[in-house]
Design a binder for these strands. Structure first.
Lengths: 214, 214, 214, 214
DNA sequence: GATGAATGAGGCTTCATTCAT
DNA sequence: CATGAATGAAGCCTCATTCAT
């Protein structure tokens, strides 16, 4: 269910042998590199295969098509981010709200930052495939995680808990994306990370204290 | 005039006769509709012309290509948003910070909400590369507007004023985008609007009170 | 018959009024200029009309189409060359063979040189229309003229008179064309003119003296 | 190597497998046939591919475009003619001038006659602009060859040697072209061949004997 | 008559995908 | 299994021509 995939998007072979794993990984990396170097308009299967050092035929042995390739790649990336956030929420479930919020924000941004090239590349990938389904799945998991995070605040926040979660997740994901589409990502990221955490603390604190009246 | 355009992005004919104006507007609307109905992958000149009820030749009388068409459309849209925010900042320049922040947020979101279909459509199209220049221009104007807004806070915030502005603009634009890419935009928007304002107030208040220590 | 034209190539209106004549001439000149400045691939009706300072609609009032326009232009040009040569042959019909040959050569080259731009332009025009019909007509008239020229030599040359005429006309027309397609036409032309005359005299003299044996 | 080509004119794939070679040759032949049957105006990539019995995609695997296809074809053809003439000049370098002139003329015409269809076809295509570079290269090589040929006459001819060479090469190439654009090429060619040789002998003899005075 | 907006057939080219080797 | 030659649907765009104003 998580990050569901329609039929034609499944990978063809499960890369069991070591060689296969290497090939698939090479193709993934080549995809990212082509995306970064040439942009989504020039992301062609030929080019990816070339860069990966395999023939176009081989690429099609592992993926039923371009869409599936991108789908896998994006899914892998988003799955990682989802897990990181869920993990962080779980780890910090007994901390104070402020720390829990920090944990959420940091986990998300750090997951994206782990491989900034890939992140940037994949933000652009939406020109090449329809990724709404995948993004939605990510967002749903983040919502769920955020809800868990705020479980003990539900009374205070009850009236608009859902709005708060929704809005907060939106600015975390949307704001982060904005940074990755900026020119100076490397420099901006760590500072945005701090400010986003600060903002989250302030926001959630305000919301906790006096409901929707602030 | 603002938001300069390279040569190949210039429109071809300025619609002089009444007939022409109708045609150009039909093409713009068709672009938005195709974007919404079929997504950016299926945005083709043929499809746009078809939907606009004009021949493909007519489309090319007014725009030198697909890119130019999108460029015009986006430019028009972003110009409007920029102006709305600048106007709002100016109108509220004597109000308290909180109100100024509200004004900024509301102006931005309301500008996007004026024609929600267009907004959604253009967010979808925005990965189409040549649009970056335009988005960047918008962001720069928003930064400038935000800086004006906080002019009287510059002492308090001096140490990280730039970070704050940058981060705040990022979550306003990025968060809003996130909403428009969601399914339930119409329903979510007004609530996000409130929360985003609340968040901004809380954030800027926190930042004003005790610098980077909160 | 002369430089015949099929039905769809006829001009539409006979330019009787002064204004019409001016317009037609402007279109002709524009055609030549576009051909020279932009090449035959960019020779479009729009461009010609633009350069002529008339609307595309007006162009079509005078010519039923692009092909007809070019056809008229080429026909006019070739007609002029044909007449010049015929005239020269007639004028010099009582001179010695050598002078008659000179007259032929000079008349042809001078006709082409009268408007060198037009000549060059029209040599290139064959990319844009099929001009074989017209060229053939010219060649036929030149053959006829040459035959007249050599009427009194027919005994001596009898065995291969036709070959001689044919070959001679071929090098006169073909050689001249070659010069016009060269880069340095202006400089080369007068010298080629002399050499071509010299060559013609030598050739015809040799052919006259001892038939095919030289 | 000789007859350099700009980037966009380079062929794409070097045909390695036997299958490829057949394909490329089929494309070349189809180009010639289309040129002959339909003329340069109807020379389209679609038509060529169709006639070659390959898909349009295959054509583009080997040539980056129509221009490049023509370029290759012409280059191959002209290279052959150049070499034939140079070879002939070298072989006959110790003969008398008359024989050397014959050798030049015969080598050139015979090279063109080897594949008369191709020659006709390429003469038709030759107005296609980018081919000028190639034609010029041929002319230059022919000039050089002719100069070698006349090396031992340079004193006698000194005053206008260059004009003579230039003019002679012009009528050889231009005249031959004229024949190939004629209807009755097959019949005319051998006779023109003889006359052109005769003409060359007469011309060069006249020029040798008494400079520019004949 | 003159204009120029509109038309659409048809050209050029790319690229995801298949399949014989 | 890997290869890469071949495929062709589909995209982009031009330009000769028409016709309502």
């Amino acid at each position: 269910m998580a990050l569901a995939s329609s039929d034609r998007l499944k990978t063809r072979k499960q890369p069991r042998q070591a060689r296969s794993k290497v090939t698939v990984e090479a193709i993934f990396q080549a995809t990212i590199q082509v995306l970064l170097a040439d942009g989504p308009l020039l992301l062609t299967t030929t080019r990816v295969a070339e860069r990966a050092g395999v023939s176009i035929g081989t690429l099609y042995q592992y993926f039923p098509g371009k869409e599936a390739l991108l789908h896998s790649l994006v899914a892998r990336h988003l799955e990682h981010a989802s897990q990181a956030v869920e993990e962080a929420c779980f780890q910090n479930r007994h901390e104070r709200l402020e720390r829990r919020a920090d944990a959420f924000v940091f986990a998300y941004i750090d997951a994206k930052t782990r491989d900034p090239d890939a992140s940037r590349a994949l933000y652009h990938a939406s020109t090449a495939i329809e990724i709404k389904e995948l993004s939605d799945a990510l967002i749903r998991r983040l919502h769920a995680a955020a809800r868990t995070l705020m479980a003990d605040q539900s009374e205070t926040l009850l009236e608009d808990l859902d709005d708060i979660i929704f809005s907060w997740v939106s600015i975390v994901t949307g704001g982060t994306r904005q940074i990755f589409e900026e020119d100076d990502t490397r420099n901006r990221l760590p500072r945005f990370r701090e400010q986003l955490a600060r903002m989250s603390r302030a926001y959630l604190a305000a919301a906790t204290l006096n409901g929707s009246r602030t």
